[in-house]
Simulated assay, not measured.
Amino acid sequence: MDSTAARRATEEVPSIPRDDNGPVFREPWEAQAFAMALALHERGVFTWNEWAQTLGDEIKRAQAAGDPDTGETYYMHWLAALERLVAEKGVATRDTLHRYRDAWDRACDRTPHGKPIELRETDFA
């Protein structure tokens, strides 16, 4: 991950969990979602203002649905915002996003703990 871009993102979106060295992640998928948002921003898919607004909307939506906002679900909101913007900007349809999410769920279900998860064509069935 480009450290300059990560630093700029933490300045533009102040809610990002971070320490003195930059963003912090509890799980690898959180870092991957962060990196995807950076890459899409750098490609001009959305501005940081659009990102911050969408992320804020997703956090508010989750809180209204009962999320206690302890910080543990922050990257779930990040992912929801990412999926929303990707669909709104026409990068991928919501159906495509759901298809891949379901495929990953199937792949996770059949993969023994500690083994790499691999998508197969049958996961899309």
Rank of each mutant, 00 (worst) to 15 (best):
M1W: 04
D2N: 14
S3N: 07
R7T: 11
R7I: 01
R8G: 06
A9V: 08
E12M: 15
E12H: 11
V13S: 09
S15D: 10
I16D: 01
P17Y: 04
P17N: 04
P17V: 03
D20E: 13
D20G: 02
N21F: 11
N21D: 15
V24C: 05
R26I: 04
E27N: 05
E30Y: 03
E30L: 08
A31H: 12
A31L: 11
Q32R: 15
Q32G: 07
M36W: 00
A37D: 05
A37Q: 08
A37I: 09
L38I: 14
L38P: 06
L38R: 09
L40R: 11
L40A: 10
L40D: 11
L40P: 02
V45D: 05
W48N: 02
W51D: 02
Q53M: 06
Q53R: 14
Q53N: 12
Q53D: 14
Q53I: 01
T54V: 11
L55Q: 02
G56S: 14
G56V: 05
D57K: 13
D57Q: 13
I59K: 11
K60N: 11
Q63N: 08
Q63H: 07
Q63G: 06
Q63W: 00
A65I: 01
D67K: 03
P68L: 00
G71E: 09
T73C: 08
Y75G: 11
Y75C: 12
L79V: 10
A81H: 06
L82R: 04
E83W: 10
E83S: 13
L85A: 03
V86E: 11
A87F: 06
K89V: 01
T93K: 04
R94G: 10
D95K: 12
D95S: 13
T96F: 14
H98G: 00
R101M: 09
W104F: 13
W104K: 07
D105V: 00
R106T: 07
R106Y: 02
A107W: 05
C108S: 04
C108V: 07
C108I: 08
D109A: 15
D109N: 13
I117Y: 02
D123L: 05
F124W: 03
A125G: 14
